Computed example of a mutant assay.
Amino acid sequence: MDDMAGLAVKPPEDLAGLLTQVRERLDRLLLDEDQPVTVLKAADKLEEIVARVGPTAARLLTRGEEETMPEIAEALAMTEKAARARLTHYEHLDS
């Protein structure tokens, strides 16, 4: 799996930075400021975002023959089985 990580698609730097900031802020809220309810509310908002964009991304990846499952798995740095499960998970969020 370590070999695959080097081949994985990485998010754009600005998005990676924002995700890091969100994670760090949530950690501070939880650990330093004792705000678990606030963290749960933020997690709910993050899940809403994932439920909105995840299914669309999964459909775009699987609708054509441009990307094969081995290529998708490599880009996600996971096994084909795990990549298929991830895509299925996102596709079902849209139901």
Rank of each mutant, 00 (worst) to 15 (best):
L29Q: 14
D27G: 03
L61E: 06
E71V: 10
A85H: 02
R28E: 11
G17N: 13
A58L: 06
R63W: 10
A43Y: 08
S95V: 09
T88C: 01
D34I: 03
E47L: 14
P36S: 05
L26H: 00
A75H: 07
V50T: 10
T38Q: 11
L15E: 07
M78N: 06
K41A: 15
A75V: 03
E67L: 14
D44K: 14
T20R: 02
L26T: 06
V39S: 01
P12C: 03
A77S: 11
V50D: 15
P70F: 09
D14I: 03
E13P: 05
G17T: 01
A42R: 13
T38F: 09
T62R: 14
L7P: 00
E74R: 15
R28G: 08
D14M: 05
R84A: 13
M4G: 02
A77R: 08
R63N: 11
E91S: 09
L40K: 13
R59M: 04
Q35V: 02
R23W: 00
E13G: 05
M69I: 11
E65A: 13
V53Y: 15
P55M: 13
E80P: 00
E24T: 08
M1F: 08
L60Q: 15
V22C: 02
A42W: 07
G64Y: 08
K10Y: 04
G17E: 05
L29W: 15
S95Y: 05
T68Q: 12
Q35Y: 06
R86P: 04
G6S: 11
P55Y: 11
P36V: 05
K10W: 00
G54D: 09
V22D: 05
D94K: 01
R23N: 06
A85I: 09
T20P: 02
L87Y: 05
L93F: 02
G54L: 06
E66D: 14
E74K: 11
R25Q: 09
E80R: 00
V53T: 07
Q21D: 12
H89K: 13
L40F: 15
L26Y: 01
A83W: 04
L40H: 12
V22F: 10
R23P: 01
T88R: 10
L29H: 03
A57E: 12
R28M: 07
A51Y: 07
A43S: 12
G64D: 12
T68C: 04
L29P: 03
G17A: 07
K10A: 14
A51F: 10
Q35H: 11
E24R: 02
E13V: 06
P11N: 03
A85L: 01
V37D: 07
G17Q: 04
V50A: 15
A83V: 04
H89T: 08
E65N: 08
K81L: 05
L60A: 13
L15S: 00
D44A: 12
E48P: 05
V50C: 12
A73C: 04
R63G: 01
R86L: 13
S95H: 09
M4R: 05
M69Q: 09
T79Q: 00
E47F: 12
A77G: 13
V39A: 08
M78E: 03
L60K: 15
E66G: 12
E33S: 04
K81D: 11
